[in-house]
Design a protein around this nucleic acid. Structure first.
Length: 430
RNA sequence: GGAGAGAUGGCUGAGUGGUCGAAAGCGGCUGACUGCUAAUCAGUUGUAGUGUCCUCUAAAGACGCUACCGCGGGUUCGAAUCCCGCUCUCUCCGCCA
């Protein structure tokens, strides 16, 4: 959520910045009109209420015979106040609705653009593997290795679900453990095991609600929402808290499954395990003071890149353009790894395995996360950041396709072997 | 799932219709005393919004007003206090990995 005060005091500047995120000036004007109404109703009601409070005190001291007349006068005053309050509430609700869906100001560095063709590559690592044979897509490998069961996934849960079995399930578990260890031991993160279901306020806090309700699963009877990413429970750990400056920055890492409806992507990426309703992810979350958040984003992104490097994958980091980035972050880096057969006969594809973003104070304002810059000083909003470190299915795709051998086996990347009892290869099933 | 108890300021805890933004204690801050520390004494100490004054402006400050006693409604001229709904916590019983 943007600071209403900034919109009010610098409307032209705000309009300019938000125009890059496809917000029309008219929307801002409408919002500011509502704001004027809210504040007018508020001051009028407060003035009346002050009069009423004073008169009410006099009533207590008044002679008995005067009381009824005074009481009647006060009652009508009360009615006018109620009217003003109702009016204010209506305007306030509309205003909040708009404010909660309005995008964040994009950072000046974010390139203009409407598709991923407009993203800018800013870094890359690893080497693209040259194949001496025709490489096969992961869904074929998954079947022949006996580690991904698509048919039974569909049988028990429907489309966009799959079952990992045997070494496939173990490989995923190995990846999770490997990533968590890397971030905790080498990068100093604190590991969190959060609930996978959260209350509505958490999703409002990080921004998924109300705008992206479409993409979420929730319980019909109770206020439980399945997390679409660990960003939600972990960022909300400190909702409505005032943190001491000495506690910052906070670096958290958490493994969770993620649940998404993917209604927006109907028909897209239906082949294989690239886009399911349920997937696993190791997520990094940082909470820091404002002046450090730019640097925090760089090191967060570097942490995610180092996982790709450790796994021996070819990766590239993209600065995501205005049209493709999340609405609520100020700046976003996507890290992609290359999967040589992910498009089947059409060849390879760069797969997004991580998205690292700085939200500045946007989530902090929604979620009420503040810190005290100095002892006794007024609390100020923190900055929040998060980034995948990494998303599992796509890493699995990249490993299967990049590490495949001509005989149909797949070599297990070295750093994962200790997590798989020393196993070095996945062998095709007879 | 059943029964009961509770939710008040940073913490403990009093408060059953106006004199309550709220006693008292603890903690915090300031000062005095004191070789130092500790102790003692005195004063002070919630948050947010908004107005006026001061000022070139801003900050800071001064003086007001409004809201906030788990959350949301209601009764009343007036609610921490009465009524209704909800949430959460604790205790006991049942069930369970």
């Amino acid at each position: 959520m943007l600071d209403l005060r900034i919109l009010r005091e610098h409307p032209d500047e705000a309009k300019q910045k938000l125009a890059r995120m496809k917000v029309t000036p008219g929307e801002i004007d409408h919002l500011l009109e509502l704001d004027v109404q809210v504040r007018r109703c508020k001051t009028e009601a407060e003035t009346l209420r002050a009069q009423m409070n004073a008169a009410s005190k006099e009533l207590a001291k008044a002679q008995p015979e005067e009381r009824d007349a005074k009481r009647l006068a006060l009652r009508s005053m009360g009615d006018s106040i109620k009217k003003l309050d109702d009016e204010r509430q209506d305007s306030e609700e509309s205003l909040n609705q708009i404010l909660l869906t309005l995008p964040n100001f994009p950072d000046d560095r974010v390139p203009e653009g409407s598709s991923d063709a407009d993203n800018q590559q800013i870094r890359a690592g690893g080497v693209l593997r040259e194949f001496s044979f025709t490489c096969r897509p992961h869904w074929e490998l998954g079947k022949s290795l006996g580690i991904i069961d698509f048919d039974r996934g569909i049988k028990i849960s429907g489309s966009r679900f799959y079952v990992l079995q045997g070494a496939g399930a173990a490989l995923q578990r190995a990846l999770i453990a490997f990533m968590l260890d890397m971030h905790t031991v080498q990068h100093g993160y604190t590991e969190i095991y959060p609930p996978f279901m959260v209350k509505q306020e958490c999703l409002t806090g990080t921004g998924q609600l109300p705008k992206f309700a479409d993409n979420l699963y929730h319980d019909a009877e109770e206020d439980y929402w399945l997390v679409p990413t660990a960003e939600v429970p972990v960022t909300n750990l400190h909702r409505d808290e005032i943190l001491e400056k000495a506690m910052l920055p906070l670096h958290y890492v958490a493994y969770t499954p993620c649940f998404r409806r993917e209604r927006m992507s109907a028909g897209k990426d239906v082949r294989g395990i690239k886009r399911g309703h349920q997937f696993d992810k190791v997520e990094m979350v940082r909470i820091c003071s404002p002046e450090t958040s730019d640097a925090e984003l760089e090191s967060l992104t570097a942490n995610a890149e180092s996982v790709c490097t450790a796994l021996g994958l070819a990766w590239r980091t993209m600065l995501v353009c205005t049209g493709e980035k999340g609405d609520f972050n100020a700046i976003q880096y996507d890290i992609e790894v290359f999967a040589p057969a992910a498009k089947g006969d059409e060849g390879g594809e760069w797969l997004e395995v991580s998205s690292c973003s700085n939200f500045r104070d946007f989530q902090a304002r929604r979620a009420g996360i503040r810190y005290r810059p100095a002892a006794g000083a007024k609390p100020e909003l923190v900055h929040t950041l998060n980034g995948s470190g990494l998303a599992l299915p796509r890493v699995m795709i990249a490993i299967l396709e990049n590490y495949q051998n001509e005989d149909g086996s797949v070599t297990i990347p070295e750093p994962l072997r200790p997590y798989m009892h020393g196993k070095t290869r996945l062998e095709p099933q007879k």
